[in-house]
Amino acid sequence: MQDGFLPLQVLCHQHQSSRFIFIKQHRSEAVGQAADHCILFVTGVPRSHPDPQEGLKAAFSCLGPIESVTLHPAKVSAVVCIAEAEAWTKLQQAAAADAVLDLSLPEGKQNGVRGWVEEHKQKFVSTAKLRQQLDDWMADHEAKEAAEKAVDQSNDGWTVVRRKGGRKKTTDAAGTAVGSVAAAAVEARMKANKEPRVLENFYKFQQRNKRRSDIMELQEQFERDKRKISELKAARRFKPS
């Protein structure tokens, strides 16, 4: 026992192994502690426990009535408040006697490596089951779509027809390439898409603006370079070894 933590062995039925949880009594002088209560910090709660709050409640109920169990968001530590002043003493006695606490898990749930293996196996369902799931989903989906269509049609029996977009077909149903693009047509299209040439330095003010922007660009580049050089110097890249 170190730093006031009391190791207590807990048993997990399903995989017949035990582990330790660590318990410490809360002693706060500032707040003061009610004489008829015992507040315990518990850490080392099995991470994969499906309902650690209930599990802890059940496990510590032998010490007295449980007022509250507050779990840390990490779900591996908790604060247990017991309405029994002697709970800590009882716990110490139990630990001294090598008692094993029963931290029961629901049936069928595994912990530790076996839990991971089970979790992994759960990903694979049988082919028939998966097919059934897919068929069910598709049936639902189709029913939903049919219902939507029916709602549409119920509006005076009119169906809104929308234009179908899509690219020009280049293969037929058998997968054979059909149609072709003439080189001249492509060139003509490219010519048509070519941006019109704009003279940027036709007017004097354009030339002036361009000069100004070039200088500003150069100044910015210079500042960037200076910053880079100073960073390289700070990183001692220029230091001869």
Binding site: Q2, D3, Q9, Q16, F20, R114, V117
Partner: peptide, 28 residues
């Protein structure tokens, strides 16, 4: 002290439970 504590208490938090560990262990 942290290392001492972990070594002393069994750093992995698991402990073989009265000879049942071997049968309970998952061999991967």
């Amino acid at each position: 002290g942290k290392r001492d504590r972990d070594e002393a208490a069994g750093a992995n938090g698991h402990a073989d439970a009265n000879g049942k560990a071997k049968s309970g262990r998952t061999v991967l």
